[in-house]
Each structure stands twice: as structure tokens, then as C-alpha cells.
């Protein structure tokens, strides 16, 4: 299977005043389509930085990052934005819904930016997704009328509505209780299976990690290894049906 994300010898440095911090040091990684990949590591190990590079919201200081066949280091802001819009979905730790828009509008938003579908097509797609994430009756609610778990479901629907090749999730369950977090992971796994969407998520929750096909372990900006969850002593659990 072809690599959907290909990272070679990437270094990412941040200038914090006079100090230069290396967030990633010579990282190389390949992700294949359809993977359900977890990035694990302690705080400050570079998980979020790695996700940002893959998500085209940031570019490497050196080395190559190829996403869906495009080298992000060579793309203008405009093209990076288009790449994000069409190929990548985002799920954030704090859900990041637009508070003044309804659930329906939040999910519809990327489709409006794409300007590819008609109003009825958009409606059909949004409503189908809402059913899938179990929020069929909540289309007109505002985000602040929903629980955390419900909000993250809306965020998942928003990430998937453009049918992207990759969905990135940065600590998607960190702000949720364990049961709700479990449900969210189950939902993501479902989507991964049914639509073949590649999921890459960061977490330090072993419970969440156990769902992954593979776990990339990071420490101090370097990839320690790429292992299966079992290999690091996590019992693999199946998603709830």
C-alpha cells in the first residue's frame, strides 16, 4: 500500500527568544492509507508538533514532509489551506466548534468552503453523518447546549464531512471522562473501518492506544519505535459493535 504520509529526516525547531528548542530531531515516518495510528509519548515529546506537520498547519525546519503526494515545504499558504480543506480532517482536544453556529452549520462549514456541493447535497451528507455519530436530533442545537462527548461527535462529523483521506486527532479524549472517551474512540474506529479513512491520533492514554493498529512512540523529539499495542503490553481491545 502506498504511503499517504511520508516524513523523512525532519527537524522542527522553535525559536523561543534566544533559546532554540528542537521539538523534532531527525524524524522519519511513513503512514499508509487506512491505518489507525497512535502517536504516544510523554508531554513535550513532540506529539503535537508531529501532528501539526502532518496536518499541514506547520512546516518543517528541515527535511521533507509529504502529505497525499505533496511536499508541504514547497507549498504556499493558500495551497496548504486547500490541502487541509480537501484531504485532512481535524479533531481537537477542546472540540473547537464555532459557538455561534448550530451543530448542522458547524458540520456543513467545510463543505461551504469547498463550494463543490449543492445545498441539498450538503444537507443530505451532513444529516447522514449526524445519524452516524448518533446526533440525528441535534441538528439545530448550539454547541453550548451539548455535552462534551456530544461536541466531540460533532467535531468528528465535521472532520469527516469532506471525506478526507486523513483525519488527525490531537488528544481527542483528553477532555472527556473515560466512558465517553471510549465511545469516541469506538466511533473513530468505526469510521476507519467503514470508510477506510486514515486516522492518526496522539494520546498518552493506554486505553485509547489499545485500539490502534500501531503505536509510534516518541521521546525528546525522536521516534523510539513503531510497535503494535501488544508489543508494549497493551491488551488490544475490539471496538464495541
Amino acid at each position: 500500500m502506498a504511503a499517504i504520509v511520508s516524513i523523512r529526516n525532519v527537524v522542527k525547531e522553535y525559536n523561543l527568544g534566544k533559546v532554540v528548542v528542537q521539538a523534532l530531531r531527525d524524524v522519519s515516518l511513513e503512514v499508509h492509507a487506512g491505518e489507525f495510528l497512535s502517536i504516544a509519548g510523554p508531554s513535550g515529546s513532540g506529539k503535537t508538533t508531529l501532528l501539526n506537520l502532518i496536518g499541514c498547519v506547520d512546516t518543517a525546519s528541515s527535511g521533507d514532509v509529504e502529505v497525499c503526494g505533496r511536499n508541504t515545504g514547497r507549498l504556499a499558504d493558500r495551497e496548504l489551506t486547500n490541502l487541509r480543506l480537501n484531504q485532512i480532517g481535524f479533531i481537537f482536544q477542546s472540540f473547537n466548534l464555532v459557538s455561534v453556529l448550530s451543530v448542522f452549520q458547524n458540520i456543513e462549514f467545510p463543505l461551504l468552503l469547498q463550494q463543490k456541493l449543492s445545498a441539498s447535497e450538503r444537507r443530505a451528507r451532513v444529516m447522514a453523518l449526524l445519524e452516524q455519530v448518533g446526533l440525528g436530533g441535534y441538528a439545530k442545537h448550539r454547541p453550548n447546549e451539548l455535552s462534551g462527548g456530544q461536541r466531540q461527535r460533532v467535531a468528528i462529523a465535521r472532520a469527516l464531512v469532506t471525506q478526507p483521506q486523513i483525519v488527525l486527532a490531537d488528544e481527542p479524549t483528553a477532555n472527556l471522562d473515560s466512558v465517553t472517551g471510549q465511545n469516541i474512540i469506538d466511533l473513530m474506529k468505526d469510521m476507519n473501518r467503514s470508510q477506510g479513512t486514515t486516522f492518526i491520533f496522539s494520546t498518552h492514554d493506554h486505553n485509547v492506544m489499545s485500539h490502534a493498529n500501531a503505536v509510534i512512540r516518541l521521546a525528546d523529539g525522536r521516534i523510539l519505535d513503531r510497535v503494535s499495542p501488544e508489543a508494549i503490553g497493551i491488551q488490544v481491545r475490539e471496538a464495541h459493535p
Binding site: 496536518g55 499558504d77 489551506t81 480537501n86 481535524f90 473547537n96 468552503l113
Partner: peptide
């Protein structure tokens, strides 16, 4: 800022 950042992340151009 966070909301705008989110919009940018999920694909809104600067012009938007």
C-alpha cells in the same frame, strides 16, 4: 484567535 485558528485549520483561506 482560537476560533479563527480553527477555521483556518479546517480549510478557511485568509480572504475568508
Amino acid at each position: 484567535v482560537r476560533e479563527i485558528g480553527t477555521l483556518r485549520a479546517i480549510g478557511a483561506q485568509r480572504r475568508f
